[in-house]
Every structure is written in structure tokens, then in C-alpha cells.
């Protein structure tokens, strides 16, 4: 009489369950880094830098150091901490001529601080623009016509000047 062979194969049915469980877990908990774009237009290199006088009312002076700090109009803030530029943007753009944001930084100022500031400036400009749309047209900015949008954007206008300084 023949001996009955016993099948010693491992049951691999559970592997699929475990794999799916892990896959679903990682799919749920994974977050991707979001990337944001900050557009800038540089002046042509041929243009000579003019050092003219500008009214203090149109000027926002910013100092960035290499210790993640920012100096705005005599007050030091932490770059990661909460601070607002809304009032400053309103001040420098409340004139017929466009405002000027002057960023003074050290050679060792990290890029992180610079981009933090530019992001804050962009966000706060959006707040000023939305506020102006409500004040002038009693509407959300997105609900305005192209002409009305251009009218507001031409009012909230400023240039950025960057300067590398030796010490703060």
C-alpha cells in the first residue's frame, strides 16, 4: 500500500491580506510635499541702479538676519512666528506712486528666511486686495470683472528691492 503524501505547502492566502492591509495603511497615512511657486521678474542687467530719494510713507524697510529673525519698522519678529504685513502694505500702497519694499539681508541669511518673507508678503497682499474689493465694490475679488480686478491690482502695487549688507 502506498504511503499518503502530506502536503507541507504554506498557505499563502494570508499574505495578500497582510499586503493589502499594509498598502492601505501607507496609502492613508502618506502625505506628499506640496510645492508652491513664487514668480518674480528681475530687472535687466543693463539698467543702472538708481539711488534716489523716496518718501518714507511709500517705503517698507525689512531686515533679514541669519538667526531666523526679521526686523520690520523697528520691531523684531521670528520668521516662523505670526506677524502681519497687511497694515504696512496698505500704508505703502495708499499713494498715487507705487510702493517699495526694500529687503536688506546678510550674505549668510538663509534662503529659508527670504522665501518665508516673500510668501508672507504675497499672502498679505492677497488679503489687502480682497479687502479693497469689498470696500470699493462690496463684492469678493473673484466675482469682479476683469476691469475692476485690474483697477484694484494697479492700486496695490509695489516693487521689491534687494540689498546685501555687511551687518545689521
Amino acid at each position: 500500500m502506498k504511503k499518503r503524501r502530506i502536503n507541507h505547502e504554506t498557505d499563502s492566502g494570508v499574505f495578500a491580506d497582510v499586503s493589502f492591509l499594509l498598502l492601505i495603511f501607507f496609502m492613508v497615512v502618506t502625505t506628499f510635499n506640496k510645492a508652491y511657486e513664487l514668480q518674480m521678474n528681475l530687472p535687466p542687467a543693463s539698467i543702472n541702479q538708481k539711488s534716489g530719494k523716496i518718501s518714507k510713507q511709500r517705503l517698507l524697510n525689512i531686515h533679514l538676519n541669519d538667526k531666523s529673525q526679521i526686523l520690520i519698522e523697528g520691531i523684531i519678529y521670528n520668521q516662523d512666528g505670526p506677524y502681519s504685513l497687511v497694515e504696512e502694505i496698505q500704508r505703502i500702497t495708499a499713494h498715487t506712486k507705487p510702493g517699495l519694499v526694500k529687503i536688506n539681508m546678510l550674505a549668510s541669511t538663509p534662503y529659508k528666511g527670504y522665501i518665508h518673507f516673500l510668501t508672507r508678503l504675497k499672502k498679505d497682499k492677497e488679503i489687502v486686495v480682497k479687502q479693497m474689493a469689498k470696500d470699493l465694490f462690496a463684492k469678493d475679488f473673484s466675482g469682479l470683472s476683469h476691469k475692476q480686478k485690474q483697477q484694484i491690482l494697479s492700486k496695490v502695487k509695489y516693487s521689491i528691492v534687494e540689498k546685501e549688507i555687511l551687518e545689521l
Binding site: N33, K34, A35, Y36, E37, L38, Q39, M40, N41, L42, P43, P44, K112, I115, H116, L118, T119, R120, K123
Partner: peptide, 12 residues
């Protein structure tokens, strides 16, 4: 090349 874009991942 005067048009530049900084790509970053900070959201203030």
C-alpha cells in the same frame, strides 16, 4: 533671463 520662479514648500 529675467523671469524666475522660486519653487518652495512653505505655506505661511
Amino acid at each position: 533671463i529675467l523671469k524666475i520662479s522660486y519653487i518652495h514648500n512653505y505655506e505661511s
